[in-house]
Structure formats: C-alpha cells, structure tokens
C-alpha cells in the first residue's frame, strides 16, 4: 500500500530533524512503545504493545535509516514482527521543509505491507486502525517538538494531553492532520510496528 501526506509543525527544521533521530522522543510518541534502542546511528530496535479494541499484541521491529540528508530528510524502512498476529514492513521517504522561520512542513511518502493473520482477517479495519495510530503519533510528536521549541528540552515528556498552546499561523493549526494522512503516515518512519496494529476481531 502507498500513502502520502504532509504535516505542519510549529518547530524549527533542525529541531524536528533532531527529534526524528532521538530514540527518547520517538519512544514517547509511538503509542504503546515499551522500548526503543539505538543500535547504531542509522538503526533502531523497538518493542511496542499494540492495542486496538480487543486486540492486544506485542510487536518487535527493526528500523533502518538511509539516504540521510540532514536536516532535509531521510528514508526509513523497517519490519515488525507480531508473532501470531503477523508482520508489517515497508518504508517511508520523509522530507522536512522550512515554510517560515520556526515552522516546518514534514512530508512523507509511505509504501508498506501488512501480512499474516492481520491481513487475512482484519481487512476492514486496516485503514482506520492505521490512521488512528498515526494520529496518535503525530499528536504526540507535534507536542514533543513544539514543547522543545517553546519550553526547552526535557519538558516534552510532561507535555499535557490538552491541545498544545500554540498560536494559529498561516499554514494551519499545529496539530491539523492534513487530508489523506491515513495509514501509518510518518509513524512508519519511526517504527513500522506502529502501523500494523489493528483489530482482527470478528
């Protein structure tokens, strides 16, 4: 499957880039993430518990970064294994563009596959679950980078769940999810594990 979209962040491009490469930031943004380890400058290993409705499964995933072009973007690819639940794999091209001082547009272009039991019995919920996961990720990520820009490093984890206190600007609200931000979106770039969580219920 292929999907693409973009997202406007209230943060400087360098800060977004740093966050995209920071395992701690990623860990707090990926829903259900238990651990994320940096194996090298370009490799991460993540464990996340996916929970959508009645489904609850633990996924382990490896993620690799390539085509690194700081702070303009990178390509991220990876694969997550969910045991009996199946697997997800794929990649995303992520580009960062400075649209105004302190404002960054993140554009992503994802190509991914879900397989095994998930694909076989969960067809109807793939889109919705993936979108939900990516929404959560973006909400968290926007808060994380926005918080850094406004409040300084280290505050992100304590960021409130309420809408971020950022002023509207010409490019849209900080947390506005652009249309077609379906599927894993950039959540894939962090760990494709995020994307494969969906209900396979009856």
């Amino acid at each position: 499957m292929k999907m693409n979209g973009s997202y406007d962040l209230n943060a400087a491009r360098e800060d977004v880039w740093a966050a995209l490469n920071d395992p701690d930031v990623l860990k707090q943004c990926i829903p259900g993430c238990e651990s994320i380890e940096k194996l090298s400058d370009t490799e991460f290993e993540a464990v996340a518990v996916a929970k959508v409705g009645p489904v609850k499964a633990k996924f382990k995933g490896k993620v690799e970064l390539s085509d690194l072009d700081p702070p303009n973007g990178y390509t991220i690819s990876g694969e997550g294994q969910g045991g009996a639940a199946g697997f997800a794999k794929g990649g995303a091209k992520v580009a960062l563009e400075e649209t105004a001082p302190g404002l960054t547009r993140l554009t992503y272009d994802v190509d991914a596959t879900v397989g095994g039991k998930l694909a076989q019995i969960g067809q109807r919920l793939v889109d919705g679950a993936a979108k939900k996961m990516s929404d959560q990720f973006f909400k968290n990520f926007a808060q994380a980078v926005g918080g850094e820009a406004d409040n300084g490093a280290g505050e992100a984890e304590a960021a409130p769940q309420a809408p971020a206190q950022t002023p509207p600007h010409p490019l849209g609200e900080n947390q506005k999810i652009v249309k077609q931000l379906s599927y894993l979106g950039v959540a894939a770039m962090v760990a494709l594990v995020v994307w494969m969580f969906f209900n396979g219920g009856p």
Binding site: M1, T113, V114, A119, Q120, I121, Q123, R124, P202
Partner: peptide, 15 residues
C-alpha cells in the same frame, strides 16, 4: 489478493 503483496484479503467470512 492484495495485488502487490499477495496477501489474501478475503481470508475469512468477514470479507
């Protein structure tokens, strides 16, 4: 089948 991945999308009576 998903034409790219070859996953069977009609793998249960749900679909």
């Amino acid at each position: 089948y998903d034409t790219e991945s070859g996953q069977l999308l009609t793998g249960s009576y749900m679909d």
